[in-house]
Simulated assay, not measured.
Amino acid sequence: MGLSKLSEECKNCPFVSRCKHKRMEALAYMTETQVLANAADPSFENLAAPLLRETMTIMVNGTPTKVYKDEIEKQIYSQLYSGLGLKLGS
């Protein structure tokens, strides 16, 4: 976050109220500990994304196996639409 003001050149200009190209001067930067902490930390949402994927248990050669549901859907759609010449999920 920063603190700024209208430049001296613009303050003295007779068209200051109608001008759309005003110049601002930076006075200071305000640092808040919470803002800096959020900017410095990596996004925990991205780190947890693989854990949030929905799983399901299917039988493969008589053995229960956990798989990701979106991977199964991708395989099903690719087999369903393979005859149409579409490149789904590739």
Rank of each mutant, 00 (worst) to 15 (best):
residue 32 E to S: 13
residue 17 S to R: 10
residue 78 S to E: 02
residue 18 R to N: 08
residue 24 M to W: 14
residue 59 M to N: 15
residue 55 T to Y: 02
residue 8 E to T: 14
residue 39 A to Q: 13
residue 77 Y to P: 01
residue 64 P to D: 07
residue 86 L to S: 03
residue 23 R to Y: 05
residue 72 I to H: 01
residue 51 L to F: 09
residue 4 S to R: 11
residue 63 T to Y: 00
residue 3 L to R: 02
residue 7 S to K: 10
residue 3 L to C: 09
residue 26 A to C: 08
residue 61 N to S: 12
residue 3 L to K: 04
residue 37 A to I: 10
residue 34 Q to A: 14
residue 45 E to H: 06
residue 88 L to Q: 03
residue 50 P to N: 05
residue 75 Q to L: 12
residue 9 E to Q: 13
residue 57 T to E: 01
residue 59 M to I: 13
residue 82 S to P: 01
residue 38 N to D: 14
residue 80 L to N: 06
residue 75 Q to D: 05
residue 69 K to I: 05
residue 50 P to K: 02
residue 58 I to N: 02
residue 34 Q to S: 15
residue 8 E to L: 11
residue 5 K to W: 00
residue 12 N to C: 10
residue 47 L to N: 06
residue 47 L to R: 11
residue 71 E to D: 15
residue 56 M to V: 15
residue 21 H to W: 04
residue 30 M to I: 15
residue 88 L to T: 06
residue 53 R to D: 10
residue 25 E to S: 10
residue 17 S to H: 10
residue 15 F to E: 07
residue 48 A to V: 13
residue 34 Q to I: 14
residue 44 F to S: 12
residue 8 E to G: 06
residue 85 G to V: 00
residue 81 Y to H: 09
residue 61 N to Y: 08
residue 14 P to G: 05
residue 74 K to L: 06
residue 66 K to L: 08
residue 36 L to T: 10
residue 59 M to S: 15
residue 11 K to I: 05
residue 56 M to Y: 00
residue 31 T to L: 10
residue 88 L to N: 03
residue 43 S to N: 15
residue 44 F to H: 08
residue 65 T to W: 01
residue 20 K to A: 07
residue 10 C to I: 03
residue 58 I to L: 13
residue 60 V to S: 05
residue 51 L to N: 06
residue 19 C to H: 08
residue 6 L to I: 15
residue 25 E to W: 02
residue 68 Y to T: 04
residue 49 A to R: 10
residue 13 C to Q: 01
residue 19 C to Y: 07
residue 70 D to T: 08
residue 89 G to V: 02
residue 11 K to Y: 05
residue 34 Q to D: 14
residue 86 L to A: 12
residue 54 E to F: 04
residue 52 L to D: 09
residue 50 P to I: 00
residue 49 A to C: 02
residue 51 L to D: 09
residue 34 Q to R: 13
residue 30 M to G: 12
residue 83 G to Q: 02
residue 7 S to G: 07
residue 45 E to A: 10
residue 22 K to L: 15
residue 29 Y to P: 00
residue 45 E to W: 01
residue 69 K to C: 03
residue 57 T to R: 01
residue 38 N to G: 11
residue 48 A to G: 04
residue 16 V to A: 09
residue 13 C to E: 02
residue 5 K to R: 15
residue 52 L to W: 01
residue 27 L to V: 15
residue 29 Y to G: 05
residue 66 K to E: 13
residue 74 K to H: 03
residue 5 K to Q: 11
residue 80 L to I: 15
residue 73 E to Q: 08
residue 18 R to S: 08
residue 4 S to K: 09
residue 85 G to K: 02
residue 53 R to M: 10
residue 4 S to A: 15
residue 73 E to K: 06
residue 49 A to T: 05
residue 57 T to N: 00
residue 42 P to A: 11
residue 10 C to M: 06
residue 20 K to Q: 12
residue 31 T to A: 09
residue 10 C to E: 03
residue 27 L to D: 03
residue 24 M to R: 14
residue 82 S to V: 01
residue 24 M to S: 13
residue 2 G to Q: 04
residue 85 G to C: 02
residue 13 C to M: 05
residue 18 R to I: 02
residue 16 V to P: 00
residue 40 A to M: 13
residue 36 L to Y: 07
residue 32 E to C: 12
residue 36 L to S: 09
residue 44 F to T: 11
residue 73 E to R: 05
residue 68 Y to M: 07
residue 6 L to K: 07
residue 77 Y to E: 07
residue 76 I to S: 00
residue 50 P to W: 01
residue 5 K to E: 12
residue 68 Y to E: 06
residue 18 R to W: 04
